[in-house]
Design a protein around this nucleic acid. Structure first.
Lengths: 116, 116
DNA sequence: GGTCGTTATATTTTAATTAATACAACGGTT
DNA sequence: AACCGTTGTATTAATTAAAATATAACGACC
């Protein structure tokens, strides 16, 4: 069974009792916000509706003691939202965990293919 | 950051170019078929429509050189479907891979929590 | 050849999700 | 106080997914 046309894929997410806290889509959104400086622009850049992005952020901030982003409406340029250091750390930790998981699965899957 | 209310969750699946071949739902379906001896009963036992179950099985058998199940319609008792040895092996291998992934992630997540 | 419970398939109906639209609130800046 | 682009929120429309329904085909068995 060595050399199959198959590959292994995975999704990992962090959750609490209420549901998911951080997942691949949420991390991607956080990174877009970090880059663009606003929810509106971030959502648009990744073809997501503002409403969906807003709900995701609301959920994340509610699940965390310290907010991941801070939002301001009104003011210079109309407002915007920026990541907290806590938000930046969340991105790094998730991505490291996710990358390690993918590497682990790749090795395990190749080992299975050789074995059988 | 040690002791958070969070935990890590994951889904792993095997895919080819056409899409997913084996995932958690498909494995659960295979196991139900193994137990019940028919698609109809298996689907019903897991609150899945016969149509959805049939499509999943069709997809799996199409992605695999050797079929995972063999189906017979008509005959004694109306027919039924049973797993091939290849299908039985697929269940075992997926579940082992999935279990190892979950153990790995649990350890990694705990390590992250201690570290930060 | 009639019966059985299953597989196979198409069609319709319903539910759920997502997208689109509209507009109020905000508050520094000019 | 008017302006700006954003956040916040509600409502409606559109799309997609899922479920329900119906029916034909199958073939060993009696």
């Amino acid at each position: 069974m060595a050399n199959t046309p198959f590959h292994v894929r995975s999704r990992v997410w962090i959750a609490d009792q209420k549901g998911t806290f951080l997942g691949e889509g949420r991390i991607q959104l956080l990174k877009a916000i970090e880059e663009k400086g606003s929810i509106t622009k971030a959502a648009h850049s990744m073809n997501m509706s503002y409403l969906k992005a807003w709900k995701l952020i609301e959920s994340m901030n509610n699940s965390s003691e310290m907010p991941l982003v801070i939002r301001t409406s009104g003011g210079k340029g109309g407002g915007g939202t920026i990541l907290t250091t806590h938000g930046e750390k969340a991105i790094r930790l998730y991505q490291e965990l996710n990358m390690r998981c993918q590497e682990f699965l790749k090795k395990e899957f190749e080992a299975l293919n050789k074995k059988y």
